[in-house]
Write a protein that binds this DNA or RNA. Structure first.
Lengths: 143, 143
DNA sequence: TATGATAATGGATTTCATTTTCATTTGCAA
DNA sequence: TTGCAAATGAAAATGAAATCCATTATCATA
């Protein structure tokens, strides 16, 4: 998904929720959409401050929360006590399969699984915004 | 796995690491092994204090960290800022769906998803032995 | 374009889960 | 039993996350 599209989606989300579009939010979101790792709030704040020194921590925090709610960012906890946000990749969502012997990581997409997830969630009264799926096993070289 | 087995495994782990077996640790571990949900430290401490008022929460923290390291408990972060520990289930695996607004956690099992995971993995040359699937969205009360 | 209701901002402060400190106690091998 | 390293627990420290509040910005409507 192109960054322009993400910005458009965000604007749409903001409008639907009756919120307001601001220069700070736009800039924080744009900065975030340019990243392609799991960025922490601290790191993102540093990037943002390079151009706009006066943007505060709270605004970055709140904007990322918004992006998380809208599904445009994925909040992840890796167990180090810090929340990191992951940008949605350009070429759509993918999941990971990790070899528990050699640590090789392969990516995959499966529309059917995603569909089943939505259905399962629906039965439980949930509406899915995003998900994490990690498979662990042995790769061809290690089995 | 029976609780007695878990306790034995823990003792083994403690011995291997050159640590010491104490009454507090045993009681905390036993209490934890009796649970079957994602228990927070706070909840576990409350349970422990019902019988042993003087056990402090630092000890509960340290014991659960130990159980996590030994593989007898699984530390999980569902995004509400609290670490929860999951007891190894007697009756097999389940996945989680988490409300991103109120942090409610529901569990589900879906054989079809698991099957598709295996198939997808197979195509990539992998053999799956374990996985983590977490869905994030809005629960019935929060949508 | 001016207004007014309401949302957003940002610096500071507070909250709260977790970790550390430290004096004391306990486990256990010799 | 004794020595000593590990464990305990009360309290303090830590630090990420959440909130507060005075001020500012947005935007639908007049």
């Amino acid at each position: 998904m192109a960054n322009q599209t993400k910005i458009a989606l965000l604007k749409g989300y903001i409008e639907t929720k009756g919120l307001k579009s601001t220069a700070q939010r736009d800039f924080i979101a744009e900065t975030f959409f340019k990243t392609n790792t799991h960025i922490s709030l601290e790191e993102l704040l540093a990037k943002v401050k390079r151009k706009h020194k006066n943007i505060g921590y709270a605004t970055v925090y709140r904007t990322m929360k918004l992006l998380g709610e809208s599904g445009l960012a994925i909040a992840r906890q890796f167990g180090d006590g810090q929340t990191r946000y992951e940008n949605l990749p350009e070429d759509g969502h993918h999941d990971h399969i990790i070899c528990i012997k050699c640590s090789k990581i392969a990516e995959f997409q499966n529309q059917k699984i995603e569909q089943l997830q939505s259905e399962t969630a629906k039965k439980l009264g949930f509406t899915v915004v995003n998900h994490k799926l990690e498979l662990y096993g042995y790769c061809a070289d290690c089995s």
